[in-house]
């Protein structure tokens, strides 16, 4: 209960700050011109556009809080540390939703008045979008491996090959789509939408993203495998809910990152097909977090009755 209220308190603070920034920060002139908006209309539109995101944050904070409660309930059991790692991973995933948004909003406002800051805004936004899932998937992957080892499970050769194949296809398409935006005549050129030299982009964005997605997808598979083979009808039902939710969360967040990095940030509000697609994926992320919370809640109940 304490953990839910602590997570929800954090959520309320972050949301409050976010809304405050939306209302008080100066409007983006480019967007105002593009959509022929007054300053008030701009702020109202931005508020409405960001509302669904705030709902996704709520699902994320609620989900990780429930998982933390369960991890705490079983902290002295053999599987306790693995679930604690999982809860930590989900906490990073949840915090990784509002923090980059807040940062982008703040930096965007600065860039709005100082055009030379635009590149910095985009660069920081891209790294902020990377760092949270990278850490989160690391925790989740550790947890999945620990649970897999405890249950003495492992991939079959076919599964390993399938995972490798899917990953290679996704990775190669990703690189192709990114490189389309780059001037490949010089690896030091920064005249691209990422405002980074090609070598730096490859080393500090593309490779870490691919690595994060790889361990994220593997972790999702590990957790699903554990849930599928877990003993105990009621325990398995609850664990399946949690695992399915987590797999949806991981898959959808990877999808959003994929789209966001393939179609670089513009640094201002732009209502496009990509924007709608990202929102639809975020809706699935929220559903995933809710499923995860329901599973964790049920597992916790088993430990309480």
């Amino acid at each position: 209960m304490k953990r839910t209220s602590s997570a929800l308190r954090s959520y309320i603070w972050l949301t409050g700050l976010f809304f405050l920034l939306i209302i008080t920060l100066p409007a983006n002139h480019l967007t105002m011109q593009q959509y022929k908006l007054s300053a008030v209309q701009y702020h109202t539109l931005l508020l409405l556009v960001e509302l669904p995101l705030v709902a996704v944050w709520f699902a994320a904070f609620y989900g990780y809080a429930k998982l933390e409660q369960y991890a705490t309930a079983i902290r002295d059991t053999p599987e306790g540390p693995a679930f604690q790692q999982l809860a930590n991973g989900c906490k990073w995933l949840a915090w990784g939703l509002p923090i980059p948004s807040l940062l982008t909003l703040l930096l965007g406002a600065i860039a709005n008045n100082h055009a030379s800051f635009h590149a910095t805004t985009i660069i920081i936004g891209n790294y902020a979008g990377l760092i949270f899932p990278l850490i989160a998937f690391g925790f989740i992957s550790e947890s999945g491996r620990e649970l897999i080892q405890r249950a003495k499970l492992n991939f079959t050769a076919t599964t390993a090959k399938n995972i490798q194949f899917i990953f290679v296809v996704l990775g190669v398409i990703y690189c192709y789509l990114i490189f389309r935006h780059l001037d490949l005549h010089s690896i030091a050129a920064t005249n691209n939408q990422y405002f980074l030299p090609v070598w730096l982009l490859v080393l500090t964005l593309i490779i870490p993203y691919l690595y994060a997605w790889f361990i994220g997808l593997l972790a999702a598979y590990d957790i699903l495998l554990i849930a599928r083979t877990a003993k105990g009808i009621f325990y398995q039902q609850a664990l399946r809910l949690l695992a399915s939710g987590l797999a949806v969360v991981i898959a959808t967040l990877i999808a959003v990152q994929y789209i966001r990095s393939v179609l670089p940030r513009s640094g201002h509000l732009s209502v496009s097909a990509t924007f709608i697609l990202v929102y639809a994926i975020y809706a699935a992320t929220a559903a995933g977090f809710i499923l995860m919370a329901a599973g964790a809640n049920r597992l916790k109940k088993i430990e309480e009755i």
Partner: peptide, 10 residues
């Protein structure tokens, strides 16, 4: 069979 690893604690 019903509660898996939570059986003993339950």
């Amino acid at each position: 069979v019903y509660l898996g690893p939570a059986a003993d604690r339950f």
